[in-house]
Design a protein around this nucleic acid. Structure first.
Lengths: 98, 98
DNA sequence: TCATCATTTTGGTAAATTGCCAAATGACAA
DNA sequence: TTGTCATTTGGCAATTTACCAAAATGATGA
């Protein structure tokens, strides 16, 4: 039994916390195709304010889940690691079993 | 771009939400050794009320992350799926990179 | 330089969620 | 019955949240 260090685990929990919101999870799913997507694509589909989507993306970025790249007028987002897509696959498999 | 269905993604987000708390994440880490652990072990280490730990375990159980088994006087918990331990490994690798 | 476009940041707020404890309850074993 | 281990319930203060509206930013193009 390892010691419980709140601070350490709090930081790690941020990663999962970021994925624990319907809109953010949906965004991550869109990025799981491995391609980059523009912010405006998300806004159109979710039907929420531009600033709200931007904030969600900021949460994902701070958690190290996505990367952004500004090119021309737009900002493009990608998954930071393919293992995140693997996590989603695992989740899907689990849900099917139920 | 897949359609955004709030209800569907909300349910899936519960899984990650459950992992998004320091105490719960720590508990899951203890279970990641593949062995079963008794509730009292967690209480001793975290230093919080028995009922609080029980509630955290309940959240993990409802999210399908852990399984419980009552034998004798005690209740023993296990990870429901090894792929959850894999997720933690992925997280560890990512944190080291930073 | 100035206007425009895409996005981010800031400020604010109402509502929801949270994490926790204490006490009550349940279930089992001695 | 009594004690032990665990869960459930009730309640609360504090934090967090999700969101919007408006202002700010920053690159681009006229």
């Amino acid at each position: 039994m390892k010691p419980f260090k709140r601070a350490e685990h709090k930081e790690q929990a941020e990663f999962f916390k970021a994925l624990g919101h319907p809109t953010r999870l949906w965004i991550v799913r869109q990025l799981a195709d491995g391609k980059e997507h523009c912010v405006c694509e998300f806004v159109d589909e979710v039907g929420v304010d531009f600033s709200t989507i931007s904030q969600h993306l900021s949460v994902l970025k701070q958690a190290g889940i996505v990367l952004d790249d500004k090119r021309g007028k737009s900002v493009y987002y990608t998954l930071s690691c393919t293992c995140i897509a693997t996590m989603l696959d695992c989740l899907d498999t689990r849900l099917k079993k139920r």
